[in-house]
């Protein structure tokens, strides 16, 4: 029975094409867009930023401001990640990993903030006064 003891491996750098241990051919994601695409995307990003700042100053758009800003910034986020960080063109497993992380973070942080925002803050005046009195009494006792 041969098994692992008969197993040998190539010693030097391995040839191109297959990746050891994988079930399929993998290319390391090199369908990068060219400089022209990058510049166009940067122009779009700049315009979107200008729109964000512009609508901030338009009073008539106030009721729509927050949702619009959120949508625009998410769009910017997606474009930078997709094109500048090449996630759109890269190995799908990078995409999976990053998006899974974002989902966890978004859910956890969203739930956390929601629990605070549904609560109302008030100044705990009485307790502060009690603390203050106790502190003064302590100072007097020390003297």
């Amino acid at each position: 029975m041969g098994g692992h003891n008969a197993a040998l491996h190539g010693a030097g750098p391995t040839g191109p094409g297959t990746k050891p241990g994988t079930d399929h051919l993998v290319t390391d994601g090199h369908g990068h867009p060219g400089e022209g695409v990058y510049i166009r995307i940067a122009i779009i990003l700049a315009i979107v930023t200008a729109i964000e700042v512009a609508i901030y100053y338009v009073d008539a758009l106030r009721p729509l401001l927050v949702p619009t800003l959120l949508v625009l910034s998410i769009a910017k986020f997606v474009v930078v990640v997709g094109y500048f960080m090449h996630l759109k063109f890269d190995d799908s497993r990078y995409r999976l990993m990053f998006i899974a992380g974002l989902v966890v973070v978004f859910s956890v942080i969203g739930a956390l903030i929601a629990m605070f925002w549904t609560d109302q803050y008030y100044v705990p005046q009485e307790a502060l006064e009690t603390l203050q009195q106790a502190r003064e009494a302590e100072a007097e006792a020390a003297e």
């Binding site: 098994g3 008969a6 197993a7 491996h9 190539g10 391995t14 297959t18 050891p20 241990g21």
Partner: peptide, 8 residues
């Protein structure tokens, strides 16, 4: 037992 290139 199938042999593959050694992972470097």
């Amino acid at each position: 037992s199938i042999l593959y290139p050694q992972p470097q």
